Amino acid sequence: MNRFVMTDVTKPEGVHHCMGCFGCFVKTPGKCVIPDACQEQGTKMAHCDEFIIVSECVYGGYSPDLKIQLDRILPYLHADFAIVDGEMHHAMRYDNDPMVRVYFYRSDITEREKDTAKRLLERNSKNLGFSKWEVNFYNSCDEALKAAGLGEEALV
């Protein structure tokens, strides 16, 4: 199984924010134009069977460090739009539907934050064309990493 893992525990060095330049649509289709460790995120997404996210739960969403990485998978999508269930979304560039598993951690996640996180993942999955997803909550980062099957060696 080909896993694509994003965590806020160990993040790539020198990662830049998505600039919204749409170069990944027009200049280098399917590949981000920013030359850093996240340049190939769209390609990695296109070839994975399982997409794993481990993030601190911040107000029912991803941590800022994770969100920077997640924004960089925009090249996974096509510049064109399509109507999906009566809503406009980017068309899919690739024919891939990985299982998406999110492992949120923090010792004091409220029920309201859990509900927000579930809705966020549902919407993210729809936007990215994923039909199979699950969200999980843990008290600590170590618990989340263990549940995701990630040890320290997997994060290096």
Rank of each mutant, 00 (worst) to 15 (best):
A117P: 00
G23C: 07
S107W: 13
K146G: 08
G20L: 11
G30H: 01
N96R: 08
C32G: 04
L77D: 00
P12T: 07
R119Y: 12
Q41T: 14
I53A: 06
K11R: 15
D85M: 02
L150G: 05
P64N: 09
G42L: 03
V156S: 15
R106G: 11
A154T: 13
L121S: 05
G86K: 06
E143G: 11
I68P: 01
E153S: 15
N96A: 11
G61Q: 04
G151V: 10
T116D: 06
F130E: 04
N96Q: 12
F104Y: 11
E152R: 15
Y105H: 05
K11Q: 10
H16N: 14
V102D: 07
Y94H: 09
Q39N: 10
E13V: 09
K118Y: 08
L121R: 02
L120G: 10
F104S: 02
L74Y: 10
S63Y: 04
P64W: 08
R72W: 08
D49P: 10
H16A: 15
P98M: 02
D36Q: 07
D8P: 02
R93L: 03
M1P: 12
R123V: 15
S63W: 03
F22H: 14
T7R: 03
I52W: 01
S131I: 03
E56Y: 07
R106S: 11
R112Y: 13
M92G: 06
R112D: 06
V100I: 11
E113C: 05
S107E: 15
T43H: 13
F137G: 01
K44F: 06
L155G: 11
Q69G: 08
V15M: 12
Y59Q: 12
L150C: 11
